[in-house]
């Protein structure tokens, strides 16, 4: 199998980049998108060229490291699938693909397809945690959690911080990511005490990082490999508004 890949090549954060066309051969339908790049990189190294830089770690869809735009869609055309889990069988032999890094002011490109997502780390640092001393694990049912809340918190906790929501959003908003964290922690009794403080601080940090605003388009939800739903954005807005009314 062969693919024509147009890939964003950029030496470093300071340099200008451009799209470069590659013919990637020796591929097969069972390979993942990242493996296709591995094969291409081997050929590039053999020729003495600089390999394409991309981020990856687990390659099983759970760490959130990987991801780039494939023909204008974050993580490519397959829904609920990270780039590392996207196999080539979703493409036809000879298909032309455009691979570009996530684009957002808050996600500067470091090299080729790699962007700096530290902005997400700082949003987490602003309130995406629970400030209780960690000791030994508490008894399983010491704190009762209603089933539906546990389920919704778990669904929101599935966010792997990949950044596809920002990349897919026409406004480069970080609403789905921030909403997922606020919902995940705020629904649980352990997160309840800091619920309002968390919403105020995380929303402030999202804004200070230079992400755009949510216009309720739903592009993030469509792109999210973990199926995070727009509902988390409503949850975040509700917590933020309630916190703003009550703050002293």
């Amino acid at each position: 199998m062969k693919l024509i890949l147009h890939i964003w090549r950029q030496k470093n954060a300071a340099s200008a980049g451009r799209m470069v066309r590659y013919e990637a051969g020796d591929l097969n339908a069972d390979m993942s998108m990242l493996e296709a790049l591995d094969v291409l990189n081997e050929r590039l190294i053999e020729k003495g060229e600089e390999p394409v830089a991309f981020e990856h770690d687990c390659r099983e869809g759970i760490c959130g490291s990987c991801g780039f735009m494939i023909n204008g869609v974050a993580h490519g055309p397959q829904r609920l699938t990270t780039t590392c889990q996207l196999t080539l069988r979703h493409f036809k032999d000879g298909d032309e693909l455009y691979l570009e890094p996530w684009r957002a002011k808050a996600f500067p490109v470091l090299k080729d397809l790699i962007v700096d997502r530290s902005a997400f780390d700082r949003i987490i640092a602003a309130g995406g945690y629970i400030s209780v001393p960690t000791g030994s694990a508490p008894d399983g049912n010491a704190i009762p959690v209603p089933k539906d809340k546990a389920d919704r918190a778990m669904d929101a906790a599935a966010c792997i911080g990949c950044g596809a929501c920002v990349a897919a959003c026409p406004n480069a908003a970080a609403a789905l990511f921030t909403g997922a964290k606020i919902t995940h922690l705020g629904l649980l009794p352990q997160g309840e005490p800091e619920r309002h403080e968390r919403a105020l601080n995380m929303v402030a940090q999202w804004n200070l990082e230079g992400f755009g605003s949510c216009t309720n388009l739903g592009e993030c939800e469509a792109a999210c490999p973990k199926g995070i739903r727009l509902e988390v954005i409503a949850h975040m807005n509700r917590d933020y508004l309630a916190a703003s009314c009550r703050r002293r």
């Binding site: 799209m19 735009m69 023909n71 869609v73 684009r103 026409p170 388009l217 739903g218 592009e219 469509a222």
Partner: peptide
């Protein structure tokens, strides 16, 4: 901006 960008839901 992107060279290619496709809206999926809006």
């Amino acid at each position: 901006g992107y060279v290619r960008h496709k809206n999926q839901s809006a």
